[in-house]
């Protein structure tokens, strides 16, 4: 079979694949906290319209890298280009989905979803209209006027996702969005995410520590090594996603890829 196309970054000499049309380019990012080095000289290209995953053991700096791309953290060295332009902070072309949802507890679902639009000065009627549409999109129709504490963890993260969709950013940055959600909800969520990815012409950059999740969802998996985080290698699991979710999860190729990643990550786990 050998359908796992991969570019072994270390062997190729220069890390990062030469993607034809990268929307996000990470160039030589280093991040130090005092004397600890969280990230070291990371180069990643995120192809437009694809779902790219940052995968690695905890403490490899994958969330740090995502927050640098989001403009929420400043890098010690290196730069991030979005659509070819270097960033200097958060921008309208990127939207973030938070691990802990980051919903305003005092605001209803629809106010939370419309928050990004409100900050951009979109008139009320228009932003509520958009918010309502996005709430439907993530399957929460009917919950517009509820408060976050009335929703389950999975539903709260859907609100977070709807908020990110509402601002119609080109790039969605998702920081372990399913880690606080139970396994059943998580699977449903992953399926929804795949569907969304086909409907919306967006780029996803996704952080996870779950190998299965990464292989199931991703077009490209960027594997980061343990601290200091650096790009270990990039895998493009060309999984055939035409079948049903269950068929995919039983697919030989899917299982082989999971197995292969586990073997290469094993070295990092004591």
């Amino acid at each position: 079979m050998g359908a796992v196309r991969r570019i072994d970054a270390a062997r190729a000499g220069r890390p990062g694949p030469a993607t034809a049309d990268p929307i996000v380019q990470v160039r030589g990012i280093t991040k130090r906290y005092g004397s600890t080095e969280a990230l070291k000289d990371v180069d990643v290209d995120v192809p437009r319209g694809k779902l790219t995953t940052l995968l690695g053991p905890s403490g490899c700096g994958k969330t740090t890298l995502l927050k640098i791309v989001a403009g929420l953290l400043d890098a010690t060295a290196g730069e991030v280009l979005v659509n070819g332009k270097p960033i200097s902070g958060p921008g309208p072309e990127r939207a973030f989905v938070f691990q802990d949802f980051a919903l305003m507890p005092w605001a209803t679902v629809i106010t939370n979803v419309a928050f990004g639009l409100e900050m951009r000065g979109v008139p009320k009627a228009e932003r509520l209209e958009t918010a309502r549409h996005c709430i439907r999109e993530v399957g929460l129709a009917g919950f517009e006027d509820r408060y976050p504490h009335e929703l389950s963890g999975g539903m709260r993260q859907r609100v977070g996702l709807a908020r990110a969709l509402a601002v119609s950013a080109d790039v969605l940055l998702l920081d372990e969005p399913f880690s606080a959600v139970d396994e059943q909800t998580r699977r449903k969520f992953q399926e929804d995410l795949l569907r969304l990815r086909h409907q919306e012409n967006k780029t996803f950059l996704f952080v996870t520590h779950s190998i299965e999740e990464a292989v199931y969802l991703s077009d490209a998996i960027v594997m980061l090594s343990r601290r200091p985080g650096r790009v270990n290698r990039i895998i493009e699991p060309a999984i055939d996603r035409s079948g049903s979710p269950d068929e995919i999860r039983r697919d030989r190729h899917y299982l082989d890829t999971v197995e292969e990643i586990w073997h290469s990550l094993r070295d990092f786990v004591e």
Binding site: K67, G71, G89, F96, F98, M104
Partner: peptide, 10 residues
């Protein structure tokens, strides 16, 4: 986390 959220949504 809410502060980061507000910043990221400009």
């Amino acid at each position: 986390s809410l502060l980061a959220m507000a910043r990221s949504f400009l």
